[in-house]
Computed example of a mutant assay.
Amino acid sequence: MLSLELSTFVHATEDEERVLQAVSNVLPERMRGSLEVYLSKNVVLGYHGNAITVMKFFIDEEVEAQEAFEHIVRRMEESDFNYFLDSLEDRFEHGRIYLRVDKQEAYLGNIRISEGDDVIRVTALLKPHLRKSEAVSRYLLSLRSKKTTQ
Rank of each mutant, 00 (worst) to 15 (best):
K103G: 10
K127L: 11
L126C: 04
I97G: 05
T13F: 10
R30G: 11
E70M: 13
N50D: 14
N82M: 12
H48I: 12
E14W: 12
Y83H: 05
L4I: 02
E70H: 12
R131Y: 10
N82F: 09
A106D: 06
N42M: 14
A51H: 08
R32A: 04
R91P: 12
S3E: 03
N50W: 09
L141V: 06
E16C: 02
D86W: 01
F92T: 13
L4Q: 08
G109V: 06
V54F: 08
R131G: 08
P128Y: 02
L4R: 03
F9R: 14
R30T: 14
H11V: 14
F58R: 07
S114T: 13
Q104C: 02
I72E: 07
N25S: 03
D118F: 08
I111N: 08
F92Q: 11
S145K: 09
V19T: 06
G33V: 00
E64T: 09
F69Y: 15
S87L: 03
P128D: 09
K127V: 06
P128S: 02
N50M: 10
E93W: 09
D60I: 03
Y47H: 02
E62M: 07
A68W: 02
G49I: 05
N110K: 07
S34C: 12
E77C: 01
L2G: 02
Y98H: 15
H129E: 05
M1E: 02
F58E: 06
D80L: 03
V136F: 01
L39E: 12
V37W: 14
P28M: 08
Y139P: 02
G95K: 14
E29W: 00
V136E: 00
L108H: 00
A12Y: 11
H48V: 12
Q66Y: 12
A135V: 02
K56H: 13
S142C: 05
Q21G: 09
R74A: 07
D60P: 00
G33H: 06
E29M: 00
V73G: 12
S7L: 06
L143E: 12
I97N: 03
D80W: 05
D60K: 05
Q66I: 10
R91T: 07
H94M: 08
S40K: 08
R91E: 15
S145G: 04
R100N: 10
S114R: 08
A68E: 07
D60E: 07
Y107C: 00
E78V: 12
Q150F: 05
L39N: 08
L6C: 04
I52F: 01
R100C: 04
R91A: 15
V10P: 03
N25I: 01
M55E: 08
H71G: 13
P128A: 01
H129D: 00
E14L: 11
E36N: 04
S145Y: 03
L99Y: 11
H71C: 14
L20S: 10
M1I: 02
I52L: 01
N42R: 15
A51Y: 10
L130H: 11
Y98A: 11
D102C: 10
D15N: 07
Y83P: 00
L45D: 09
K127E: 10
E105A: 10
D102K: 08
